[in-house]
């Protein structure tokens, strides 16, 4: 089964997950806080995602629930991208 996200997404996410061993697969429901995502890591991740996908996540999305799992982060990105495409 292929990942629900593109390869670059995982390349940006892995470096901020200090406790996820390199060989361990990233699952949609991986608990990012448990995997080592802290508040500083969240900021780094946000900046690289916004830059790479040329999007701006609105402030109301920037809460802990958005950054709880890879799936929730990816959903936020696709929602904003889709909105941009419709506009």
């Amino acid at each position: 089964m292929s990942d629900p996200w593109d390869a670059q997404f995982e390349d940006m996410l892995r470096p901020v997950l200090q406790h996820l061993p390199p060989g361990e697969p990233l699952r949609p429901d991986t608990d990012l806080a448990q995997a080592g995502l802290d508040s500083m890591g969240t900021v780094e991740l946000l900046l690289s995602l916004e830059d790479h996908y040329s999007i701006s996540l609105p402030d109301e999305m920037l809460q802990s629930s958005t950054f709880s799992t890879p799936e929730s982060v990816w959903k936020a990105i696709t929602a904003v991208r889709d909105q941009g495409a419709e506009a």
């Binding site: 508040s39 900021v43 946000l46």
Partner: peptide, 14 residues
């Protein structure tokens, strides 16, 4: 440092 980083997450400056 932490507050500065978090400030980037609050673009509307609440």
């Amino acid at each position: 440092t932490v507050t500065g980083a978090m400030t980037l997450m609050d673009r509307s400056v609440r």
